[in-house]
């Protein structure tokens, strides 16, 4: 596959992911989009109404804002590393091609 065709298919992959993420927001208007993990927690309460968690988290983010800060930091750190590594490989590749 030549380079421009590959570039195009990469864009299609990104567009596919965006459509899959945005479509529910547009088409399912009255949904709250709660986390599935939290829904499972509620389901445990339905199956076994008396269940009390026997251990508490060692640290809990004090607010939703702090929690979203931590989540975005996680994504930012990971994305930074991916960008750095891919950039490094790309430049190495270019130098090797120039030499060869």
């Amino acid at each position: 596959m030549n380079q421009s065709k590959k570039g195009l298919s990469n864009w299609l992959l990104v567009v596919g992911v965006l459509i899959l993420a945005v479509a529910p927001l547009i088409f399912i208007r009255d949904a709250e989009f709660n986390g599935a993990d939290g829904q499972a927690e509620a389901a445990i309460g339905e199956v076994q109404p008396g269940y009390e968690p026997w251990f508490q988290p060692v640290f809990e983010p004090p607010s939703g804002e702090v929690e979203s800060l931590l989540f975005s930091s996680q994504a930012a750190l990971g994305a930074g590393v991916i960008g750095y590594v891919i950039g490094l490989y790309k430049e190495r590749n270019r130098q090797e091609r120039n030499k060869g």
Binding site: A21, P24, E32, F33, G35, A36, Q74, G80, I82
Partner: peptide
């Protein structure tokens, strides 16, 4: 290896809305 670790680090932080009206 760092890239593979970073990839799962990013993806598991992204909670994406889904067709069921919840996010995961």
């Amino acid at each position: 290896l760092a890239l593979a670790g970073a990839f799962t680090f990013v993806l598991s932080a992204l909670k994406i809305p889904s067709v069921t009206g919840s996010s995961s």
